[in-house]
Amino acid sequence: MGIGRAHAKAILLGEHAVVYGAAALAVPIPQLTATASAGWSAGSAQAGAADNLSFTATGSVTRTMVTQVSESLRRLTAAFKARTGVTDEAHLDVIVDGTVPPGGGLGSSAATSRAIVLALANLFDRDLSDADAFDLVQTAENVAHGRASGVDARAVGASAPLRFQAGRAAELAIGCDTLLVVADSGSPGSTKEAVRRLRASFTGAGAQERFVERAGRLVDTAVAALAAGRAAELGAQLTEYHALLGAAGLSTDRIDALVTAALDAGSLGAKITGGGLGGCMIALTRPEHARTVTARLHETGAAQTWVVPLRRASGHV
């Protein structure tokens, strides 16, 4: 039996613009995990077990996600075997237990794929480099979302907040004593539909360039504020980025209500996170305000909340 683990992530700033070459800032959420186990089945003649693979999911997983993962798992397994030289054709059983909410914008599909990749490496006794693991997760992400930027594939294995751009990641310098309160709206988003809607919003000459340029300025200002410990300035960039995504039609009334509630309760900034059209929002909050912000978000309709320290994590899951 091989075991693999990965965790959730939240995009602090830069979602969507990162696909067009801008930078994105991502934060690991180690308390939300995906754990995969992979082993050889006693028999291969199982109903629906095409290509010598069976997939089972437990935890926070929807029927739609099971279908998506089942489809991408075959490509992922084939790519893993090709890259690592595995020729074994025995029937594989893969089981994933996840606590990352699907459609929440927290990297559920990437975390699941990374956990599976690491479980296969463990099962077949293969040493994977970070680059190998990233490339394999990207294989599955491109199946799930179309053209994926790579930020999710990198962040679900990171131990610290990252700046990601054009396939390269670097740890962020952090001088703020703050928290991120993550709230699930209870309504799953759709990355593919959000990408389509954003492209449709680029009407007129230079519209795409203006979106990417403004996003890049907000990200750059946030990086400097985060490093210098200017928490209020960092929060303002989050709120402005939410307005940018909202103007493109990527937010929802429920998300907007949660953003307003977080700001009214004392958060320094708040925004939708991830693909959009539902899912989760994040609120940059000082520790002394976290309880009030969390309570207000639940009063406003948040299905779940999590509190994530904005600092270097102690290690990988």
Rank of each mutant, 00 (worst) to 15 (best):
G315P: 09
L25H: 04
A34K: 05
T99Y: 01
L12F: 15
T239D: 11
Q208A: 12
E299W: 02
W40G: 06
L162S: 08
A313P: 03
D177S: 15
V307W: 04
F124G: 02
L268V: 09
A133C: 14
S44K: 08
I255G: 03
D177C: 11
P309Y: 00
T67Y: 00
R210S: 11
A224Y: 01
G206T: 10
D97F: 02
N52F: 11
H289T: 10
L238Y: 06
T77V: 13
A6H: 11
V212I: 02
V96M: 07
H242E: 04
F124Q: 06
P28D: 04
G103E: 10
T67D: 12
A110L: 12
E193A: 15
K271M: 01
A17F: 11
S187G: 00
G4C: 12
A148H: 06
K192I: 14
L310P: 12
L297H: 00
A170H: 10
T99G: 06
A227R: 10
E299I: 02
A10C: 12
S314V: 12
R63P: 07
I11K: 04
A169T: 07
L226E: 05
M281R: 01
V182Q: 02
A23E: 15
V219H: 03
T67I: 06
G235C: 10
D220I: 04
R74F: 01
R197C: 00
H16D: 14
L120M: 15
D220Q: 15
L32G: 08
A194W: 09
I11E: 02
R163S: 12
L123Q: 11
M281E: 05
V96C: 08
E209W: 00
T35M: 15
A79D: 05
E89M: 10
G167L: 04
T191M: 07
L234V: 00
P101M: 11
